[in-house]
Amino acid sequence: MTEPSVTHPYTPQQELPDHPVPVMQTRSLNVFYGGFHAVHDVDLAFGHHEITALIGPSGCGKSTVLRCLNRMNDLVPSARVEGEVLYHDQDVYAPSVDPIEVRRHIGMVFQKANPFPKSIYDNVAYGPRVTGMKVDSMDDHVERCLRGAALWDEVKDKLKESGYSLSGGQQQRLCIARAIATEPDVILMDEPCSALDPIATAAIEDLMLQLREQYTIVIVTHNMQQAARVSDRTAFFTARPDETTGNRTGLLVEFDKTSTIFENPSDQRTEDYISGRFG
């Protein structure tokens, strides 16, 4: 694979505190799909205006953890969640909490760009409309979000055209514009660049660094350089087979500043994975 032509320098936050000031936190998070124990005891903290990367081999439960943060796992009938997921000290899994409300504060961008079969404008305006968000002028709001997603210049003359008419990378940025249109606090991204070429990937990475000024971002990625380039902190997961059943349960191995994880990991498994000695 060719190395992407990186247009942005590695920009760690200068004054990154040793421990995150958490916007979201998981405490002893365990996830089950039916009888299958997918994720075991995950404790993570996602810092205010930081980018946190979740990395690890396929099937170790990165997407599962991510989907718990805004209760998208509710859509899987067999999924069961134990432990706590805190958003500003409020457990999003508390019985009184409405998952719809959670998702209005915690937006999501999916692995495969999934614009609505509607116009570019309506794609962005959809969230504010259905959530009854008050905006002074929808036109201005749509423009602001498209600018925020670094897409405005490319689409400003064809806002009425279908979202499908865009390229894959543009579609993914449209999905990001759509996600920030509801003015969430946290944005979750599950392998947002896995279907994109290096140039589109670089554009999205630039965008993430800009978005960090306003949002707390959690990103799942298989691209180690990407995690190193954009994230402030990195969580490394792996999967451990159960002795009796052979089921592979995901667990958190190490969570630290990205620079520490990549340069000086404290766990052998992390080092093996980072240096490519382990799939």
Binding site: N70, F110, N114, F116, Y126, V130, C175
Partner: peptide
């Protein structure tokens, strides 16, 4: 109707009914 469409809508904070009415049924 692709699940990704439902996820996109629900992920934005739309209710299940809004999702069905705005996306699933038209498709």
């Amino acid at each position: 109707v692709p699940t990704s469409l439902r996820q996109a809508s629900l992920g934005l904070g739309a209710t299940k009914w809004q999702t069905i009415w705005h996306h699933v049924l038209p498709s």
